[in-house]
């Protein structure tokens, strides 16, 4: 099973991540789906939700969900900072914003009736 794609039209499975209240305001928490760890962020200040891989590519730690989220620059790019060495990644594109680490995978996310769903691409 791989989760390489992250565009909306490729989603094959919408995974239920939990109730909106399971995710702290302006913060994140990780969910486990099969053997995959996904970081889910509830960015209350800008009223948006994001989902990315939980693994920080720098030291390969399952940690991003515990990072501080924020925005960067005039475009107000939403980002997360890894707690270990403050590597920051765009929550939209997954790109490393302050270095040359590999990008992280980002996933489509949607809220229906206060339930959070993350969109995955699973091989049949």
């Amino acid at each position: 099973m791989t989760f390489e794609h992250n565009t909306l039209d490729q989603v094959t499975t919408w995974v239920k991540a939990g109730h909106v209240s399971d995710f702290p305001e302006d913060g994140g928490s990780s969910i486990l789906y099969k053997d995959q760890q996904i970081a889910v962020f509830n960015f209350t200040t800008i009223n948006k939700w994001f989902a990315t891989q939980n693994l920080c590519p720098h030291k390969k730690q399952m940690i991003l969900a515990r990072g501080i989220i924020g925005t960067q620059g005039e475009e107000q790019t939403p980002k997360v900072a890894c707690p270990y060495h403050k590597k920051t990644f765009s929550l939209e594109t997954g790109e490393n914003l302050n270095g040359c680490e590999d990008s992280i995978t980002t996933f489509p996310i949607k809220i229906e009736d206060d339930t959070v769903f993350v969109g995955l691409v699973e091989e049949k």
Binding site: D26, F43, T45, I46, G67, I68, I69, G70, T71, Q72, Q76, P78, K79, A81, K86, T88
Partner: peptide, 8 residues
């Protein structure tokens, strides 16, 4: 903006 890992 939305804050960051410095100001928070």
């Amino acid at each position: 903006g939305g804050g960051c890992e410095t100001c928070k």
